[in-house]
Computed example of a mutant assay.
Amino acid sequence: MKPEAIREYLMVNGRLEPTSNTEIFEKIEKPPIYEVIRVIDGVPLFLEDHLDRMRESARIIDYPIKRKDVQIEEDIKDLIIKNGVKNLNVKLLCTDIENMGQVVLAYFIKSFYPPEEYYEEGIHTILFNYERENPNAKIQMLSFREEVARKLEENNAFEALLVNKDGYIPEGSRSNIFFVKGENIYTAPKGDVLLGITRKYIFQVCEELNIEIVEENIHKDDLIRLDGAFMSGTSVNVLPISSIDNIRLDSVSNKIIKEISKAYINKMREYIESRTL
């Protein structure tokens, strides 16, 4: 695995190590379980949800994580303090390494947060034929990531919507996808996708706003009948989609998407404020 830790230090099973020591990454051979957590003002956003999902990924592939949640939380806090970083993404990674046994790494990674113009103008997306073998487990597959990155660059796109063998679109390559038809929101059933943390809170705010979410996959042939669409994720929050291949969508002006985005940002602020008192 290529070294990806940035800043000065990373954590290895609670032990502080310099990121210049890349040997540990070179020893990682099998696809690891991982989580990416956004740190805002020194607070790991929705940390408990991320740790729960990481353990669920481990359960699905029958690979129990030995390090306790409270220990991992301390790892992240130490990482933030020692690096003097308050706004960046942290990656948690769990795997077996020869002569070390199970290892939990915590480190900062290069992070991209969409500029305001992306929210004002929407993003361009493409369709990409691919079906995850185990959509509910967050396991790092480098060949998939590299192929998607190449396609995105070729098409000057921000995200790829994954199309399964039957022509349905359950999710994005690194996000959950929501479609708007009339007054309803459509998104894939929970068994078909990785259950994003942002997705969880979007469900909450939609319930509070009395917006109905229909858990149903949308077929690629039905995209022309949409009123809007957006992607959600750790680094992007609620990001409107202005085009899917050659199909144009007026998502940035959609009232429902605007309401959901505003309510989700409020959820984020409430969480951060509750942990900075």
Rank of each mutant, 00 (worst) to 15 (best):
D222G: 00
V70L: 13
M141H: 15
K68T: 13
Y130L: 02
S261I: 01
K30V: 08
T276V: 10
E121G: 04
I123Q: 00
G122I: 10
K190C: 02
L47M: 05
I126R: 00
F25S: 09
E133L: 11
V205A: 05
F112C: 00
F144C: 04
N156V: 07
E207G: 08
S143N: 13
N21S: 14
E183M: 06
V70R: 15
N184C: 07
I81G: 04
E17L: 11
N13T: 10
I40Y: 13
I224V: 15
G172F: 00
R275M: 13
A229D: 06
L161K: 10
A157T: 04
F46Y: 08
N129W: 04
K27S: 13
N254S: 10
G101Q: 11
V252R: 04
N176D: 06
R67I: 15
D245A: 12
Y130F: 09
D78C: 04
L88S: 08
M141T: 10
V12Q: 05
T198V: 14
E131T: 14
A137L: 12
D49R: 05
M231A: 15
A137D: 07
Y9T: 07
Y113H: 12
R7K: 15
Q140K: 15
R248V: 06
I72V: 15
E121L: 15
H124W: 01
Y113L: 14
I40S: 09
L10A: 05
I241T: 10
V104R: 02
R53E: 05
A229F: 07
K165L: 08
S143G: 05
P189R: 07
V205I: 08
T276L: 15
